Computed example of a mutant assay.
Amino acid sequence: MKLAKNHPSQESQVIQMALNKAIANALEKKRKLGQYAVMWENNRVVYKGADAPDRHDDKQTT
């Protein structure tokens, strides 16, 4: 997701890379433990994983 029009600073890039790595590690850990993940995609909640609940709610709350 890009919201800023200016090029991010070096410090911001380092922070972003650290956050991306932390998220990837957490998702990998959940995958190894057989847990599902809850994410936000296309303005709705999405459940991902082998044991994710079967949710087909197209209702959106604002």
Rank of each mutant, 00 (worst) to 15 (best):
M1K: 13
V45E: 08
P53E: 07
K5V: 08
E11Q: 03
Y47V: 00
E41H: 13
M1G: 15
K2H: 08
R44G: 07
A26I: 06
A37D: 03
E28A: 13
E41F: 01
K21Y: 01
R31T: 04
G49C: 10
L33S: 11
Q13M: 13
Q10L: 14
G49W: 03
Q13K: 12
Y47I: 00
L33I: 01
N6V: 11
H56Q: 06
L27F: 04
Q16K: 10
N20R: 08
Y47Q: 00
E11I: 02
A18H: 03
D54A: 13
S9P: 13
K30M: 05
R44V: 04
Q16V: 05
V46E: 10
D51L: 06
K2W: 09
V46T: 09
D57N: 10
R55L: 09
K48L: 14
V45R: 02
P53A: 05
Y36C: 04
L19K: 07
R31M: 05
N25P: 00
A50E: 14
E11P: 00
D57H: 04
Q13P: 00
A24V: 06
Q60G: 05
N42G: 04
I23L: 07
T61M: 15
K5A: 10
W40G: 02
D54S: 12
W40K: 03
L19Y: 08
A18P: 02
M39N: 12
Y36Q: 04
H56V: 12
A37Y: 01
Q16M: 02
T61R: 14
Q10T: 08
K59G: 09
V46Q: 05
A4G: 11
A50I: 13
N6E: 12
G34S: 08
Q60D: 11
G34L: 12
E11T: 10
H56M: 07
V14I: 12
E28F: 01
Q13Y: 00
A26S: 15
A24Y: 01
M17K: 10
S12T: 12
Q60E: 15
K32F: 01
Q16D: 07
D51V: 01
Q10R: 15
R55S: 10
N6Y: 00
T61D: 13
Q13T: 02
K5C: 02
N42F: 05
E41L: 14
A18C: 03
M1V: 14
G34W: 05
D54V: 14
V45F: 01
E41W: 04
A52S: 10
N6R: 07
E41D: 13
M39D: 13
D57E: 14
H56L: 05
N25F: 00
N6Q: 10
Q60F: 09
E28H: 13
K30W: 00
G34I: 05
I15H: 08
I15M: 15
A50Y: 09
T62R: 09
L27H: 09
S12Y: 02
M1N: 10
R55H: 15
M39L: 15
E28M: 12
H7W: 05
D58W: 11
D51I: 05
I15S: 06
G34T: 11
Y47L: 00
N6F: 09
T62Y: 11
K59D: 12
M39G: 03
H7E: 15
K32A: 11
K5G: 10
E11V: 09
W40E: 11
V38Q: 10
A50K: 15
A50C: 03
R31K: 14
R44M: 12
K59I: 07
Q13C: 06
N25R: 05
A24L: 14
I15F: 15
K21A: 11
L27E: 14
M1L: 14
D57Y: 04
A26H: 03
L33G: 11
